[in-house]
Design a protein around this nucleic acid. Structure first.
Lengths: 220, 220
DNA sequence: GTCTATAACACGATAGAC
DNA sequence: GTCTATCGTGTTATAGAC
């Protein structure tokens, strides 16, 4: 927010659009709304994006591509599934809360059904697969309770999506702290020994990678 | 679904609309879509509802009025806050999953902001207040961990809303069982002694009220 | 790269016959 | 209570000047 007043138009469109989508939903936001809040006229939008849905698609990519990368890395790594899941959640939720876009509508099922947003559907599918393999590993190694795989995976999504949805209205003072609290909550649900959550968190945060900077989208 | 082929038109409109709203969102569903799926022409809708938003408002009432009643009753009652919260979640989630309408969009913040849906906003506010007083009681009595009240309350909403959202896509075989699993999950998050969830569930289910029948809306 | 003007269409809602 | 016909508006997107 400090030096965002001379960003490329394309970038300003994406930021405006993500806020408007969060406030009024994708279908509730017109291209006129987006243009006005960007400071250009409605037809000028179409110099930067061929259609309205390409704006949403660009936001979905910005949300889901880093998410897929982290999830699949966490699924590949060695070590405690609990610690890997915790770290993945902290880093990915932290990334979303730190992002210059408001990721509220990028993952809603209403969008995913539309063939226009097929790419996002595929990316989200890969996230689910990676998460499930982490959960399955935790269960088979005895770290997690013997929960239904699908149910556990959905529950994780409920909490993460709920936070992102609320984050537009809540004031998230310290993204990293909020992300950790959410990861703790998820681990407490899953762990066979719920008291072990403190140890898992300590190991997770000790091995955390450094945070990446502000992200810019390359393509739509 | 067994004998739904000669319901009053008004009722058929509400059922069709709730499914369409779930699939494509409120703004993504046109009055023509609703009429077609009801088996009438588009202008005939307006004999039953003055405007499109009155259809949504009727669905919101059908969702939130029983919810408010249960939440405020649970907050009033005596006894263990953990047991009261568990029972409230089981009964209310069970009710939503059993309902003839798909309650997916009735509580989304996008709707709540719109002054057209002010009534729903007020009802949802009362649900939040009742839930918070239950959580506060649980914390002060030492049954729950010393969580931030707002964070705990939001987390409950994330899980319940997530389930309802998914329920449109998931096949929920036994609503009552699913509702119990979700209540267990919520209690496991909150309880100071997570192992106590089994005792809480047993006491909760033992004192459960009998299920009410299929609900019909009276007014829009 | 942004503009004005406008096409082409979908939207919610009304009028009035039956 | 449902229909046909239609109004007025807002929508996404295009054409073409600057």
């Amino acid at each position: 927010m400090t030096t965002s007043h001379r960003l490329p138009t394309r970038e300003r469109i994406l930021r405006s659009a993500s806020h408007l989508f969060a406030a009024r939903g994708y279908y509730g936001t017109s291209t006129r709304d987006i243009a006005e809040s960007t400071g250009i006229r409605q037809p000028s939008l179409f110099h930067h994006f061929a259609t309205k849905d390409r704006i949403m698609a660009a936001l979905q990519r910005a949300d889901l591509e880093p998410c897929v990368a982290r999830a699949e890395q966490a699924a590949r790594e060695a070590g405690s599934p609990a610690v890997r899941l915790h770290r993945y959640v902290v880093e990915d939720v932290g990334r979303m809360l730190d992002a210059p876009y408001v990721f509220v509508t990028t993952r809603v099922p209403t969008m995913m059904d539309d063939p226009q947003f097929l790419d996002a559907r595929e990316l989200l599918g890969r996230v689910q697969t990676a998460q499930m393999s982490l959960i399955a590993a935790g269960i088979s190694e005895g770290e997690f309770r013997d929960l239904d795989l699908d149910f556990a995976n959905r529950a994780i999504g409920w909490i993460i999506n709920g936070l992102i949805l609320d984050s537009y209205r809540m004031e998230v003072v310290v993204p990293r702290l909020m992300a950790t609290q959410v990861a703790d909550l998820i681990l407490r649900m899953l762990l066979a020994d719920p008291e072990g959550v403190n140890a898992v968190r300590d190991e997770s945060l000790a091995g955390a990678t450094s945070r990446d900077g502000e992200q810019i989208i390359s393509d739509g």
